[in-house]
Design a protein around this nucleic acid. Sequence first.
DNA 1: GATATGTATGTGATACTATAACACGTCAAG
DNA 2: CTTGACGTGTTATAGTATCACATACATATC
Lengths: 173, 173
Amino acid sequence: MPHDTPHAEACPGCQTPDLAFAQHDHGHCSTDALARAEALAVARGVRLTPVRRRVLEILLEEHKAMGAYDVLTRLAAEGFGNQPPVAYRALEFLEDQGFAHRICRLNAFTACMHPGEDHAPAFLICRVCDTVAEAPAAPVMAALTKAAAQSGFVIERANIEALGLCPACAGTA
Amino acid sequence: MPHDTPHAEACPGCQTPDLAFAQHDHGHCSTDALARAEALAVARGVRLTPVRRRVLEILLEEHKAMGAYDVLTRLAAEGFGNQPPVAYRALEFLEDQGFAHRICRLNAFTACMHPGEDHAPAFLICRVCDTVAEAPAAPVMAALTKAAAQSGFVIERANIEALGLCPACAGTA
DNA sequence: GATATGTATGTGATACTATAACACGTCAAG
DNA sequence: CTTGACGTGTTATAGTATCACATACATATC
């Protein structure tokens, strides 16, 4: 019975939030996230088809925010369709399933590192080096849900994105 | 000495968060926000030129999220330039000065109702009626700042956007 | 007053992002 | 076997945003 423990507990690079911008064994994260996504797809009765799976792999490999057309270029090079809808449909599927996140500010997408954990991601975008970190934001989401509830608004999906300076770029500046 | 009290204290419609989706005397909000923006521009030594001012007025009049091209159409009809950069430049200026906000999820912009108050806006977007409410989100921003700080990230600007159902649409569903 | 400098605007062209609409193939249910 | 749901491929098009250059207009400086 695999994957019943959060990824962060087993991944040194993901254990502490302050390592979000640091190097870590990303290979482990990738294979783990992919395995989790596959298991979740089966459990939910949705199909992680070749295109969808490959898009997720690409996002995991790159480990950065990618535009739909960046993904499409790679898909086309591998014999998949080379028209925009191919990429957009796969990305939409991954987002719907929580396997990937859309970063509106960048018109880009990134693989979710913690699929199935029902987390609330916040994205920290460095305006200098363009690195994007996915920070744990459960308290942020809680506060947002509360604020929305005061207006009677029911949140279904949220985008929490911050633009600023990562530790490295803040240091050199 | 005008404008030394927060707008919400004087505007019935803005006093309580739970009225964010309700009707209120928007005329008062508009003129107030415009006057505040003008004062702030003078104080900061930046120029609220005719185009910029008109764009802000348009956003305030419409009181909803508008695409850059929607704004541009209105500008062109009034004798201003009719090319995209005209609108985008004005909108960027307004966003930089905190007179307007960008709603990434909608590729749209909206006037800020509380310019100069250093608030943290969260946008609640109804997926049924497309209404957008600007909810007070100081606690949300505080949580986000804290989460970012744990990674050593310094936030300069944040987008907090939620998609879901507004009270009215949630009721009819 | 003439000149320089920074800023703002106008314009044409173009790049980038995203979706609509339809055809075809596959698979499972009835 | 037929139907219907789903996924993919493709053409075409819609929508969003920026680049690059020219011009105007302000203020500051000589």
